[in-house]
């Protein structure tokens, strides 16, 4: 009977956590935004979350594009289809790797930092003290970080795909000698703006909401001890990675499956 009780307890805990997370999110984004005071906070967070993640995104994008071109070339050349390398690299980046790898890197780089930061603010009573100063921490702390995450990740994903393409071009055209003209023209013939680029951006937007939400909630809900915060940080990375991969399947099935 024990395991049934455990199952029950776990289920209840899961659902109450989802409930608390929803209340937190609603409290943060429904509250009337104060543009004069809120905008500088938002800009500050775009810097912390977006700009500081730029280096890891650009470097990873470059290498992933290069590896894709190298691997793709060895397969395609057997069929004499190496001219389609551009198509292969661009579609893999725009549809899948751009949004997904960006979201995973984002969870590791910015998500864990967000959790730790908010968890520490909770542990050092900064959140409580905001409340006692009659300042709503959901609006002052959570909302700017949430919006900054949702705003930054699609930009990072676009940059990731672009840099990846350039990396693919570097290896495919400059190094392996695929024809420059056919690399780009076959790519252009097969990539569609709405179908591929826009859908990739929509994916990345959905991932942004989920990863930022999980990161902030894990911090906000952390047990305010050093142990609790380190646990929450791990949970952020694990849960948001799983959520991203699972959602990616669903979104891909919806967008490209039919």
């Amino acid at each position: 009977m024990d395991w049934i009780q455990n199952l029950g307890r776990n289920t209840i805990e899961r659902f109450t956590a989802i409930g608390r997370a929803t209340f937190m999110l609603i409290g943060a984004i429904v509250a009337k935004p104060n543009l004069v005071k809120g905008f500088p906070l938002f800009v500050q967070q775009v810097y912390v979350i977006g700009v500081l993640s730029l280096v890891i995104i650009v470097v990873s994008g470059l290498f992933i594009g290069m590896v894709l071109a190298l691997q793709g070339y060895t397969v395609l050349v057997d069929y004499g289809a190496e001219d389609s390398l551009g198509q292969m690299v661009s579609l893999s980046l725009l549809r899948e790797l751009g949004p997904v790898v960006t979201a995973l890197l984002f969870a590791g780089r910015a998500g864990s930092a967000l959790t730790a930061e908010i968890g520490l603010m909770k542990a050092t009573e900064q959140l409580t003290s905001l409340e006692m100063m009659a300042v709503d921490p959901l609006r002052r702390v959570v909302a700017p970080r949430f919006w900054a995450g949702v705003f930054s990740m699609p930009i990072l994903a676009i940059l990731f795909s672009s840099v990846g393409l350039l990396g693919g071009h570097l290896v495919g055209v400059e190094w392996l000698g695929v024809d420059h003209g056919s690399f780009w023209s076959i790519m252009q013939a097969s990539v569609q703006f709405e179908g591929d680029i826009l859908n990739g951006i929509i994916k990345s937007f959905v991932f942004a909401i989920v990863v930022t939400w999980i990161a902030i909630f894990r911090g906000y809900d952390a047990i305010p001890t050093s142990e609790g915060i380190s646990q929450a940080t791990t949970q952020t990375v694990v849960q948001s990675s799983l959520a991203v991969l699972g959602l990616d399947f669903v979104l891909t099935a919806l967008m490209f499956g039919g």
């Binding site: 050092t124 009573e125 900064q126 409580t128 003290s129 006692m132 100063m133």
Partner: peptide, 11 residues
């Protein structure tokens, strides 16, 4: 107003 044990200054 409340003075917290840790001070709770914004870091």
């Amino acid at each position: 107003s409340m003075l917290f044990q840790s001070g709770a200054l914004f870091t």
